[in-house]
Simulated scan of single mutants.
Amino acid sequence: MQHRSLFEPTSLGAITLKNRIVMPPLTRQRSGQPGDVATPLMASYYQQRASAGLIISEGTQIEPRGQGYAWTPGIYNQRQIDGWRTVTDAVHAAGGVIFAQLWHVGRVSHHALQPDQAAPVAPSPIAADKAKAFIETAPGSGTLVQPSMPRQLSVEEIKALVELYAQAARNALSAGFDGVEIHAANGYLVNQFISTHANQRTDEYGGSLANRLRFLREVVQAMSAVVGPQRVGVRFSPLFSSTDEDRVYIGFVEEDPHQTYIEAIRVLEEQGIGYLSIAEADWANAPDLPEAFRREVRDTFSGRILYAGLYTAERAARLVESGLADLVAFGRPFVANPDLPQRIAQGWPLNPLNAEGLYGGGVQGFTDYPRYSPASQVG
C-alpha cells in the first residue's frame, strides 16, 4: 500500500474515520430548481466518493440571504432537508461519513440573489470589490457580476443570525448529516466579522480582535449546543501575503495574520470542537503557510487538524507523519476521481479534470468520471 499513514483510522469524537483522506467542500452549482434543493444526481455524486474518511458537503446556505451564487443548495426549509436526506442516506449506505458545511456569504452577493432584491447584509457597509457573485441570467445559464453594496447588520440582526446558524445545524441533523462545519473562510460572512478589511464596527462586534471574534464564538457555541462540540468543525483560510491582488478575497491578509488566527483557534479550543480545517492558498505562486504558524496551530488546538491545498499524496503523507496534521483534503483530485483513496493506496494514475464541468450542468464532469480499470490503461 502506498502512503500508509493516510490509511490509518482515526477518531473524530465518537465517530471513527476509516482513513485520513477528506473530500473538502466543493461548490458544484447543481442543486434542483426552483428551490435550491439537493437532488438524486447529487446523491450519486457523493455516494461515489464515500470511500473518503470524511466528506464535507459543498457550501450550503443557512438562509435565503446567505446565497452568493446561483444554483447552490440551501438547508433552511423542509424540501431542502428532504433533498439532503437523499444524499446522506446514499453516503451512509456506502459506508461513508458526511458533514454539512453551513454557509452564509454575507456581502459577497448581488441583489438579484436576495429576497425582494434587497442589499446583501454584512458587518459594515463596505463593498466586496475583489470578489464576484454569480447570478442566473436565463434558466441554466448565468454570469459573474460585481457584488452589490451591502448594508450593515444591526446587533439584533446579528443575534438572529446566530440562531439561524443553530437552526441550520438542527436541519442538518434532521437531514442525516453526521456533523456540521462552519464556513469561516474565503471572505464570507464569519470571515468578514473577523477581518478589519470588512468589519469597521464600533460596537461589541467590532474594533478589538476579541470583539471581531465574538460572532465566531457565538455561532460555534450555538451550533455546539445543537449537535455537540465534537461534531462541529470550523474552516479558516489564513493568508500571510499575496502576490495576486485579485485573490485577496479568498481570505483577508490581516496586519498580523499569525496573531489573528491563533486567537481565533483559541476560541475553538475553548469550545472543544472536533476539528479545525485550514484552507491554504491554492493558486500559482501562492504563499505557503509559515512553519511556525503550523506548529503553533498544533500546540494551540487539541482536536483534529485538517489541511487543504495543492496537496499530492506524498506531501499529505509527510504532513500527517510530522504530527502537524491529522487529516488532509484533496479537492479537484476528488472531483475527477471518485475512487481517489484506492488510487492513492495502489499508486494508480489519476483521471484528468474536466474543468468545463466544474460549475453547473448535469452528469458531464460530475458523476461520469470512471473508476480505475487496468483494462482502460492498455494501449
Rank of each mutant, 00 (worst) to 15 (best):
V328C: 03
E321Q: 11
L327C: 06
Q342K: 14
R315V: 00
T312G: 12
R315Y: 13
R318C: 04
F330C: 01
L324E: 13
A316E: 03
T312E: 06
G347H: 15
W348K: 04
I305Y: 10
V328A: 03
V328R: 04
R343K: 15
F330E: 02
T300N: 10
F334G: 02
S302T: 15
A336I: 09
V335Y: 04
S302Q: 14
F334A: 08
Y307N: 09
V320C: 12
R318A: 11
P341H: 09
R332P: 00
P333E: 11
G347W: 07
P341L: 04
P338C: 07
A316S: 05
Q342G: 08
D326C: 10
A317R: 09
L327Q: 07
I344P: 01
S322W: 14
L306I: 06
I344T: 03
I305S: 11
F330Q: 01
V320L: 08
E314N: 10
G347A: 13
A336E: 04
G303C: 04
L310D: 11
R343I: 14
T300M: 07
G303Y: 01
S302I: 07
A313W: 08
L319W: 10
D299I: 00
P352E: 03
A325R: 02
L350T: 05
E314Q: 12
L350G: 01
P338Y: 02
L324S: 10
L306C: 00
W348N: 15
E321H: 11
G331I: 13
A317S: 15
Q346E: 15
G303E: 03
R343W: 05
F334T: 14
A308V: 15
L327E: 03
D299L: 13
I344E: 02
G347K: 15
D326Y: 11
E314G: 01
T300V: 12
G347Y: 02
G303S: 07
L324I: 12
N351R: 08
S322V: 12
A336G: 00
V320T: 11
V320A: 09
W348M: 13
L319V: 02
A317M: 04
P341A: 11
L340C: 08
E321L: 04
A329N: 06
G323Y: 13
N354V: 00
S302H: 14
N351W: 02
I344V: 12
A308S: 14
P349K: 03
Y307S: 08
Q346V: 06
S302G: 14
G347F: 08
P338N: 06
P333L: 05
L319E: 04
L353W: 07
S302M: 06
L324F: 15
L310H: 06
